[in-house]
Computed example of a mutant assay.
Amino acid sequence: MKNYILISFLALTMLAFSQKSMAQGCVAIRQFSGLGNAVGQGNILNQGELNVSMSYRYFKSYKHFRGSHEEQDRVENGTEVINYQHGLDINISYAFSERLYGIVSLPLQYNERSSLYEHNRTDRHTTYSKGFGDMRIGAGYWLLSGGKAKKGNTAIGLGIKFPTGDYAATSTFYKGEDETPTEMTVDQSIQLGDGGTGLIVDFQGLWNIGGTSFLYYDGFYMFNPKNTNGTSTNRSRPNEAIMSVPDQFAVRTGVFRAFEKVHGLGVSLGGRVEGIPVRDAIGGSDGFRRPGYIISVEPGVSYMRGNVTGTLNVPIALHRNRTQSVTDIENSTPEKEVHGDAAFADYLINFTLAWRIPKKAPAIFKSL
């Protein structure tokens, strides 16, 4: 039983942290927009225990897609847009009971964007953004308890994303033949926030399928009812002049296996779909956005020693699609279809360290 509990904790920890690693690029899927490391923790932590984690991620996006067609000439001609993103997510989760957990999550970001078209279209320059992202708080509840959860469990969660990240960050652009320095708002893909208050609906589950193997599944949808955020895009088309505040989604499933002979070691392999819809489920969808989705295969490895767990996940893109946006449709004519492009990453690296803090027993019990 003790081994089963440890293996389950390892599997749930991997599930929790890998959910947050979001593939990204010019399609502005926000950093760690799920509820965070509370997912997978409430079923294992005892009442009153804490889990503190720090998750680092990195990606480089540079391959351009219009629909699902890759425009390989962009890289060959040196006209591609290159985004680099470094993110650090700080999470604190707390178990109110065996089944109820809460989470507070604060992301920090450092972004670079290198391009020609945003400057004088001849020389490549880089813009930057850094600082806090959009903070999230949430809670979740496991549907089964006690012996009913012996083989597995499913949790549902609700959260709120607050617009704490700068959604009008600026950097220096170089315009004209004389490369005049001009302070302007950076591209939507490297803004630190989206300016909207979002509602996050979350689910996740883990079931033993034999021995030390588990089936996992999880996902979320973030509703962003706000229409636009008032931030200039610096684009020429009137209906694309202001940034949109888009919804976001992700769904994952796969298999996790722990190695009994190497105590604390586990691996996983699964698939994931994530993206930004063309239209929001609630509220307007005006302004500029780059909708699209990514289908990835996601290998991972984790190692638990005592109360500390390290997890590495590397989602690798299999299919990328920059879908036609609302403004693309509005700007299209019978003679000419408008369909914007977006740059995507080939893979994403996400590494997490988590520290489980057991509840201390009263001194009177320690002496017994």
Rank of each mutant, 00 (worst) to 15 (best):
N239R: 03
T253E: 04
T13C: 03
N120V: 03
G146Q: 04
N51L: 05
E298K: 11
E260F: 10
K2G: 01
M54H: 11
G131V: 01
Q31R: 00
P315S: 04
G34M: 06
T182A: 04
F249C: 00
D166Q: 01
N51I: 00
D187E: 13
I92Q: 04
T79K: 12
S115D: 11
P107Q: 06
L158Y: 00
A168F: 07
K359T: 03
I29Q: 05
I156G: 11
A16K: 10
P358V: 01
E183Y: 12
N37H: 15
Q47G: 12
R320D: 04
G254P: 05
N239L: 07
G306P: 05
L10H: 02
C26A: 15
G78Q: 10
S114C: 12
G157D: 01
I7K: 08
H64F: 03
K63L: 15
I295A: 09
H319D: 08
F96N: 01
F65W: 06
G147F: 13
N37V: 08
S8W: 04
F9K: 09
Y167I: 00
R74C: 07
H119C: 07
G219P: 07
R279N: 08
V52Y: 14
G36H: 01
L50M: 09
N234K: 05
V273A: 13
S296P: 05
G25S: 06
H125W: 07
A16D: 13
F173A: 01
I190K: 01
N43S: 10
A155S: 14
I329V: 15
A258L: 05
T180S: 08
R272E: 11
C26G: 13
F17W: 15
G147Y: 09
A23L: 15
T352K: 02
E274L: 11
Y128S: 08
L6S: 12
Q191P: 00
G133P: 04
Y117F: 13
K175S: 10
S296M: 09
F17Y: 15
